[in-house]
């Protein structure tokens, strides 16, 4: 079993800020827009270094998406930044028509996704954003797991021509992926080899999946762990190959089970290799106020929940 070292807790949004800072220096076409959340999105460094390429749009997200779409006409690569809730649900029609249907090269970068936003409560804890975004034709959907991966993904999506939804979060979480990783859109990352169950996780649940695999190992269960940072396009091949070996799968995500990673995996398997599956996800509910850890515990989105789901799915083989 491979061991992964947490090099120190860091927030994924700071990974975004660091990636954007690099892009500011390496790609002069990159511009950034923010709807009054520059500090929360960690866009301060880009703003300080490139004030002429930073656009403060105020609390006006619909206009921000339209502005970003327009800036692509002239060759700019706009990165928009606000909370995930205001990046998706609030501006769905603007993204649909002005970005996705118009085929514009806009990078929608969304922080504070999911329950781990914490105490602000359900108005801000979107658990439906992945579903909204993955339904849009041509939209790439990425949910990164730690600081290093978020930084790498931020840099990588600038080189991809097309709309991207990049989802990350607020809390400081384990930072364990390599600092020098090359981020390949649509390519799953195998973290553990295993033979009894496949755990397919995304975002903050990837570290929890590794913790779960350790616990399962102690119980004599060999878990394969796959980090799916790109929910769309999904790495079907990697998932099918793994479940052919293990015969069952648990998906884990900080999102509603409707519309999330789990549904995408289920569709892939249903059409290619029907496989018993359990979903670690929120169960069609809104969140509430609380600390991130309390919320992940209450809504069943942690290592313990993954262990439980793994043991259950194995019995269904």
């Amino acid at each position: 079993m491979k061991t992964y070292e947490n090099t120190g807790n860091k927030d994924t949004r700071s990974g975004f800020g660091a990636g954007l800072e690099v892009l500011g220096k390496t790609n002069e076409d990159v511009v950034a827009l923010c709807a009054d959340l520059t500090g929360s999105l960690k866009m301060d460094a880009f703003k300080a270094n490139h004030p002429e390429r930073f656009f403060q749009v105020g609390i006006a997200e619909a206009n921000m998406i339209g502005l970003a779409a327009g800036m692509t006409i002239g060759g700019k690569i706009p990165f928009t930044g606000t909370f995930a809730n205001f990046s998706t649900g609030r501006v769905y029609d603007q993204i649909r028509q002005s970005v996705a249907y118009s085929g514009k090269n806009v990078k929608i970068c969304a922080s504070h996704a999911g329950l781990t936003l914490g105490e602000d409560g359900a108005t801000h804890q979107i658990l439906e954003d992945v579903g909204l975004m993955k339904m849009l034709p041509g939209m790439t959907v990425i949910n990164t797991c730690d600081y290093n991966q978020t930084k790498a993904a931020t840099i990588a999506i600038a080189a991809h021509n097309g709309p991207v939804y990049l989802r990350f979060g607020r809390p400081k979480v384990a930072n364990f992926t390599p600092e020098d990783q090359s981020f390949q859109i649509g390519k799953a990352v195998h973290l553990q080899e295993g033979s009894d169950v496949t755990i397919v996780a995304t975002g903050h649940l990837v570290w929890e999946a590794l913790e779960a695999a350790k616990e399962l190992h102690e119980a004599g269960i060999s878990a394969e762990v796959i980090n799916i940072h790109t929910i769309k396009p999904l790495d079907d091949e990697a998932i099918i190959a793994s479940v052919k070996k293990t015969g069952c799968v648990v998906t884990a995500e900080e999102h509603n089970f409707l519309g999330g990673l789990g549904e995408s995996v289920a569709r892939t398997l249903a059409t290619s290799h029907p496989t018993p599956q359990e979903f670690v996800a929120t169960q069609d509910t809104f969140g509430e106020s609380g600390t991130p850890a309390q919320l992940m515990e209450k809504y069943g989105l942690n290592a313990a929940a993954i262990v439980k789901a793994s043991k259950k799915v194995i019995t269904r083989k």
Binding site: L67, G70, I73, G74, G75, K76, D93
Partner: peptide, 22 residues
């Protein structure tokens, strides 16, 4: 740009205008 769902065109035009300035 696509248009039809109303109210979006001015924002896009402003973005294109900002790009022209840049």
């Amino acid at each position: 740009m696509a248009s039809g769902s109303l109210g979006q065109g001015l924002s896009v035009a402003l973005g294109a205008a900002e790009a022209k300035k840049l």
